[in-house]
Simulated scan of single mutants.
Amino acid sequence: MAIRKATFAETQRILQHSLHVWKEASVGYVQPSLEKAFQLAASFLQGGGYYLLYVEGPVIQGWIAIGEMRDFYIDEAAGFIQELYVLPPYRSRGVAEKLCKEAFRRLKAKGYRKVQLNVFAGNRAKQLYKKLGFYEVCTTMERNLENEKD
C-alpha cells in the first residue's frame, strides 16, 4: 500500500470517473453533466489542487483531491478536500480514512490550520467525516417552489 501524488496521466484517468463520482457524491440532488464535472475539476486543478492516490501495486483503489480555499467568513486560507472517492471493490477497508489522514498531514505541513469540505445531506461519507473530527459550520437550506400555489 502506498499513498502518493498522482501523475498527469493518472489524473487524466481519475477525471474519466468525474461524472460518476459527482453523481454518487451528490446523492440525487444534482443531475451532473460531463461538461460541468470537467469545469469543476479544471478550476480546482488550475488553482493548485491535486490528487493523492491510494495504490496497491499498480492498482488505484481510491483518491482524494486536496488544495486550498479561502474561508470567506474569516478571510483565512484553509486546506480543502475537493473530492474523496474509493472504487467500489475496495470500500470498507479503511482506504478513505487513510487518504484523509495523509491529506491532513500534508495540509498541516503546508501551514494550514484547518481543512474544510462540502458534503451533500445523505452522503454516507458524512459519517466518516464526523468520525475524523469534522463538524458542521454552515448549512445550505432549500425550499422547492415548483408546486407552490400563488
Results as ranks from 00 to 15, higher is better:
2 A>P: 00
5 K>H: 05
5 K>C: 10
6 A>S: 03
6 A>I: 02
8 F>G: 05
9 A>M: 00
9 A>L: 02
10 E>N: 04
10 E>F: 00
10 E>P: 00
11 T>L: 01
12 Q>T: 00
13 R>Q: 11
17 H>V: 04
17 H>N: 09
19 L>S: 10
20 H>W: 06
25 A>W: 03
27 V>S: 06
28 G>N: 12
33 S>V: 02
34 L>C: 01
35 E>H: 08
35 E>Q: 11
37 A>F: 02
37 A>T: 03
38 F>S: 01
38 F>A: 10
39 Q>W: 02
41 A>C: 01
42 A>Y: 13
43 S>P: 00
43 S>D: 10
44 F>K: 15
44 F>W: 15
45 L>P: 13
45 L>A: 07
45 L>V: 03
45 L>W: 06
48 G>D: 07
49 G>E: 11
49 G>R: 13
50 Y>E: 13
50 Y>V: 00
51 Y>D: 06
52 L>I: 05
53 L>Y: 08
53 L>S: 09
54 Y>G: 13
54 Y>M: 14
56 E>V: 13
58 P>C: 08
59 V>A: 09
61 Q>C: 06
61 Q>V: 02
63 W>E: 14
63 W>D: 12
65 A>Q: 14
68 E>N: 06
69 M>A: 14
70 R>F: 00
72 F>M: 12
74 I>P: 04
75 D>W: 09
76 E>K: 14
79 G>R: 02
80 F>T: 05
80 F>S: 03
82 Q>T: 01
82 Q>M: 01
82 Q>L: 00
84 L>I: 14
84 L>C: 09
85 Y>V: 07
87 L>T: 01
87 L>F: 02
89 P>K: 04
89 P>S: 07
90 Y>S: 07
91 R>Y: 00
91 R>I: 01
92 S>T: 12
94 G>N: 13
94 G>W: 11
94 G>E: 11
96 A>K: 07
97 E>G: 10
98 K>Q: 15
99 L>S: 06
103 A>N: 09
103 A>Y: 07
104 F>D: 02
104 F>V: 01
105 R>I: 05
105 R>V: 04
107 L>R: 00
108 K>A: 15
109 A>N: 12
109 A>C: 08
111 G>H: 12
112 Y>V: 11
112 Y>M: 12
114 K>W: 04
118 N>V: 15
125 A>Y: 04
125 A>M: 11
126 K>F: 11
128 L>S: 10
129 Y>P: 03
130 K>M: 03
130 K>N: 05
130 K>Y: 04
132 L>P: 00
133 G>E: 03
134 F>R: 03
135 Y>W: 13
136 E>P: 08
137 V>D: 14
138 C>R: 13
140 T>P: 01
143 R>V: 05
146 E>T: 12
146 E>L: 15
147 N>A: 14
149 K>N: 13
150 D>Q: 08
